[in-house]
């Protein structure tokens, strides 16, 4: 569809905004046709459930009786009388502040660095780096490596060389839980964004690099700053959002590693708290309120990161 030309709208005598909107919609008929199949399914299976969940966050709902409206009681309870929630918030932020930026940088740095290599070598290294995130439940191998008894690979090795006298309870000692979880999650972090960056770098016009070299760009760092990063802006935003959602919503790896609930709630995050109330205690209203808080936290962080990325740009 051709873009609407301003003069065609002006030729009609003073159309009101509704008519103008309708005209613009009609002019973009094709775009709506392209969007419609996806949009219908998206509204039905994503937007509608989210709206219902937000509604439920203002109710008491045990999934047996119909939801009962209780206003903002759930939110009050979350912040005023739920000590475990505050622990979960703290853990989530610690976890997110470490794994979010680190995984983001790792995804970009590795994608950028292997881009210099010949295709065949690059393919092999991409497979090696990406393998952990494609390995499904294989990350459970870390429970064997970090196992608390002498059969655990790490404890076994440390014992053998006499570095420690008794096995360290990596997965149940509150002191060790978070570091172990962070290591495992970082191990799996070269995933979606990593592949997106690799594919995005393929699309940067190689003539740009050649022209830059002629124009006096001397080393890889200058090239990164002047050519690669500006060309990759859209992908960088994509990667940032994926890192935020992954690091704030981590639970899929945490629960199998340190158990649920974990000792002293040392591995408890907002999402495990949410699972506790939603799937164990069947307090769906309360669980929904937790989800809304998490959502607000993520959106806030995303805004912050976006502003940061934009300021880097200028």
């Amino acid at each position: 569809m051709r873009p609407v030309i301003a003069t065609s709208a002006a030729s009609i005598p003073e159309p009101n905004w509704a008519q103008r909107l309708w005209k613009e919609i009609k002019a973009n008929k094709a775009a709506y046709f392209f969007l419609a199949p996806y949009a219908i399914l998206f509204f039905l299976f994503t937007v509608l459930p989210v709206l219902i969940a937000i509604g439920l966050s203002f109710t008491h709902y045990n999934m047996l009786q119909p939801p009962k409206w209780i206003g903002y009681q759930n939110y009050l309870r979350l912040f005023l009388s739920d000590d475990v929630f505050l622990i979960a918030v703290k853990n989530t932020f610690v976890f997110a502040i470490i794994t979010g930026p680190l995984s983001y940088f790792a995804c970009f740095v590795f994608a950028w660095l292997i881009n210099d290599l010949q295709p065949r070598i690059r393919a092999v290294l991409t497979l090696m780096l990406y393998a952990p995130s494609i390995s499904g439940s294989m990350f459970m191998i870390w429970t064997v490596m970090f196992s608390g008894d002498a059969y655990g690979y790490i404890n076994g090795t440390l014992l053998k060389f006499g570095i420690i006298d008794e096995p360290i309870q990596f997965l149940t000692d509150p002191q060790w839980m978070m570091p172990v979880v962070i290591i495992v999650v970082l191990w799996m972090s070269l995933g979606t964004s990593f592949l997106a960056f690799i594919a995005g770098l393929q699309g940067v016009d190689s003539e740009l690099y050649e022209a830059a070299a002629v124009d006096g760009v001397r080393n890889r760092w200058q090239e990164l700053v002047f050519i690669t990063l500006p060309q990759m802006k859209g992908y960088l935003m994509f990667g940032a959002i994926m890192s935020i959602t992954n690091s704030f919503a981590a639970a899929a790896q945490i629960i199998p590693l340190v158990g649920f609930p974990s000792t002293d709630y040392a591995g408890h995050t907002i999402v495990t708290h949410l699972i506790d109330y939603g799937n164990v205690r069947f307090e769906m209203g309360y669980a929904s309120a937790i989800a809304v808080i998490l959502f607000v936290a993520m959106v806030g962080t995303q805004r912050l990161v976006q502003r940061l990325l934009n300021s880097l740009d200028s």
Binding site: E24, N28, V47, P49, A53, L274, N279, M284, A287
Partner: peptide
């Protein structure tokens, strides 16, 4: 294409990534 609602729709898609799936399971 620039059309009315395009930006709104796109931000909804991004925002939806940030809503925990565990609570939308029941409505779904």
């Amino acid at each position: 294409h620039k059309f009315p609602g395009a930006n709104l729709f796109f931000s909804m898609v991004i925002l939806s990534l940030m809503f925990a799936r565990q609570v939308t399971a029941i409505p779904n």
